[in-house]
């Protein structure tokens, strides 16, 4: 093997890759926010004793958890316009695909955090005369949050990696930009190795920040 690595093509189109990285961070960030909203909604619906709330939530969660992510990208981009006569731009279609599916996963993370709090904590709070809303806010959620944190971060990293599928809709994320650079330079080895390392740097940085935050959350243990 006497391959001569040549990163000059990658360097010359560095601006394209950087735009791609920014777009990847942007779409991941926005999808996490919407995913959390969807997830909270689904979690409380599923926890509800009222079946007209819990049954649809369970169905939604199972549907999105058990389908390949790329289907949802195609569905929102190609199928929704047929159904609703609206066409979404690639960014919006990708955000919807990412936040609905990760919402389903987040819902299980949130619900799991809440139900993992021991029965005694609910009883201890109730015995003081606290109302359901008070004990949720003061006793259950603060403890559940610290337990949800690690799986939440894990799930958010999954989501960030899944954003690469947005390139199939021609959204200018890191992977899409890499494909552009590759078509100009014909250097797939250098291009794809570079962006793989960019994903690694992004997520390792994020996980370091997450560990600091987690250490603060769980300081009482």
């Amino acid at each position: 093997m006497s391959y001569h690595w040549d990163f000059s093509g990658v360097w010359s189109r560095w601006d394209l890759l950087l735009t791609g990285l920014v777009n990847t961070v942007k779409i991941a960030g926005i999808s996490i926010v919407f995913g959390v909203i969807v997830g909270l909604l689904l979690a409380f619906m599923k926890l509800s004793p009222r079946r007209f709330l819990s049954v649809p939530a369970t169905a939604f969660i199972e549907f999105y958890r058990n389908t390949p992510p790329i289907i949802h990208f195609f569905w929102f981009y190609y199928a929704l316009p047929v159904l609703a006569n609206v066409s979404l731009n690639p960014f919006l279609a990708a955000v919807l695909a990412l936040s609905t599916q990760s919402g389903a996963f987040y819902a299980e993370v949130f619900r799991g955090g809440i139900v993992s709090i021991e029965k005694g904590q609910w009883e201890g709070a109730r015995a003081l005369g606290m109302r359901h809303s008070q004990l949720m806010r003061r006793i259950i959620l603060p403890q559940a949050l610290t337990r949800m944190f690690a799986p939440f971060v894990e799930r958010s990293f999954e989501l960030t990696k899944t954003t690469a599928l947005a390139s199939t809709l021609a959204y200018a994320d890191l992977l899409y930009q890499a494909m552009l650079v590759n078509s100009e330079t014909f250097r797939p080895l250098e291009v794809y190795t570079t962006i793989a390392l960019m994903y690694v740097i992004l997520l390792v940085t994020a996980s370091t920040l997450a560990r600091v935050a987690e250490a603060r959350l769980t300081a009482y243990r």
Binding site: G124, A127, L128, R138, I139, Q143, T146
Partner: peptide
């Protein structure tokens, strides 16, 4: 009608003082 439990059921994320203050503040 107050209650003391077999398993104490203290709130682990609060200090001793905060545990005792909690009902006074919220309830």
């Amino acid at each position: 009608v107050g209650m003391v439990f077999q398993q104490f059921n203290l709130f682990p994320h609060m200090t001793v003082l905060e545990n005792v203050m909690e009902g006074l503040l919220t309830v």
